[in-house]
Design a protein around this nucleic acid. Structure first.
Length: 258
DNA sequence: ATGCCTAACTCCGTTAGA
């Protein structure tokens, strides 16, 4: 089963790129973030025509997440939003069971400018995610938690670490919270497959970052223990970042043994 | 320390992204 994650940065602005990528790579499951569209403006028909059924949690202007499953796969939604902050109206988490695997699709808050209320929200969101992650581990099912974590895990995952120390994507408390989440028993799938390589999933639109390979690794796959030995392959669809009218993120994918 | 680039929404500037 091929599972992909892709921060599209506007599903309508990115529709031709999204459809081309789906056609080219044919993932069984695609987790999308930053739809930037309310529910009624999700291009449902085009997604269906591409051969996918979808569930989504949209929002006007910002945020928004969706899970697409290839026709023939059943998709059963098991939750949207994270517990612990009822007043939180940002659409950043959707979860479903597909093929006996629980898939959490997440768009973690950016947190900048930091310090400040946005970083505080990010830290609370990380705690709420950790709580859900622990519940899923304790439930003893196969789980993939994937999406745009907005966390650079180590110095290896950023082109110039010294420029990012104060940034909400790389600050010590953010990295610490991410590493504590992983330490619950999760596996960072891409880092497991490529322990030493420089791998980036995001390239700023500014200053030809993609052409200069000045990137960040912030889109991740966390696997529950059931799946660590089923991880066959994975990677970044780097070339998609070079397409016209493309997102600033590149799609990331893994292949799990059935 | 900030802009660079891009999108959405509302109106041609503001807010947010990372």
């Amino acid at each position: 089963m091929r599972i992909a994650t892709y921060n599209v940065n506007g599903i309508n602005a990115r529709l031709p790129v999204l459809l081309k990528w789906l056609e080219e790579t044919k993932p069984d499951v695609a987790c999308l973030q930053e739809l930037k569209a309310p529910d009624e403006k999700i291009p449902k028909q085009e997604i269906e025509n591409a051969g996918y059924t979808a569930i989504w949690h949209g929002q006007k202007r910002w945020n928004g997440v969706a899970i697409l499953a290839k026709n023939g796969l059943e998709i059963e939604e098991t939750g949207r939003g994270l517990a612990g902050e009822p007043e939180d109206e940002q659409s950043r988490y959707i979860e479903a069971v597909i093929n006996d695997t629980t898939i959490g699709c997440l768009y973690l808050p950016n947190g900048n400018p930091a310090p400040g209320p946005k970083l505080d929200y990010k830290m609370r969101w990380l705690q709420r995610l950790s709580k859900r992650a622990k519940e899923l581990l304790d439930s003893d099912v196969a789980v993939v938690l994937t999406g745009d974590y907005n966390v650079i895990p180590t110095e290896k995952d950023v082109y110039k670490p010294e420029r990012w120390f104060d940034d909400a994507l790389f600050r010590p408390e953010v990295r610490k919270a991410f590493h504590e989440l992983v330490a619950q028993g999760w596996t960072d799938a891409i880092r497991k497959l490529y322990p030493e390589e420089t791998i980036y999933t995001f390239f700023d639109y500014f200053r030809n970052a993609y052409q200069r390979n000045a990137g960040l690794r912030i889109d991740h796959f966390l696997l529950s223990p059931h799946l660590t030995n089923k991880l066959k392959d994975g990677g970044v669809d780097n070339h998609v970042r070079g397409w016209e009218k493309t997102s600033d993120h590149a799609p990331v994918w893994i292949e799990l043994e059935e």
